[in-house]
Amino acid sequence: MMWNWSFAWHILPTILHGMVITIEATILGMLLALVLGLFWAGLLLLPNRWIFWSTRGITEFIRDTPLLIQLFFCYYVLPEIGITIPALLTGITVLGINYSAYTAEVYRAGLQNIPRGQWDAAKALNFTTWQTFTRIILPQAIPPIVPAMGNNLIAMFKDTPLLSTITVMEMLDRAMIIGDKTFRYLEPLTMVGILFLIISLMASALIGFTQRKILVRR
């Protein structure tokens, strides 16, 4: 079976259409991961052992179990407890929760790199804890972690094909549908692979660029 160019051209629009959903899922999933991860990181800072260990336990469990099973779990169990949302939204939520466990670690490392003196200085100036966190600590902690967050974004992008298993019509799902219908899997699957390769290579280059920028600035 040889590569068929006209067939490839014919299916390209369908696959590109799937790419829109792939990118949508990635961006929304990452936004959720960024917010929720910061929430976990904040909980880990609180001076309460019980909160600390339960937060650790939750994030550890999320990181040590397969995303695929987490997807299945939510896809099948959410409707049982009365939550009926579109599959895409379920997918985005699970992606976001899954990656929040990783972004939490990144935030934590970034926060730990802020010297104690900064907290002390803010206290000496009579800032509230909330003000200290949002106006003094975070603005210093965020820039150095941008590259690590970028790597998480790429990793999440590469995990979006899993959403095809819960009927989300992203790129891989469309490729498989084409394959099932025409019995030609080579072209659609290869094209999806190449599209992923192009985007992640470009994104990696961009991260490398920002990383050098940040290193220069410090």
Binding site: K158, T160, P161, S164, L189, F196
Partner: peptide, 15 residues
């Protein structure tokens, strides 16, 4: 590293 494990697996299995 640039593509996704699931795509690689499907490619190896179907294509």
């Amino acid at each position: 590293r640039g593509t996704s494990a699931l795509i690689q697996l499907f490619w190896a299995f179907y294509a």
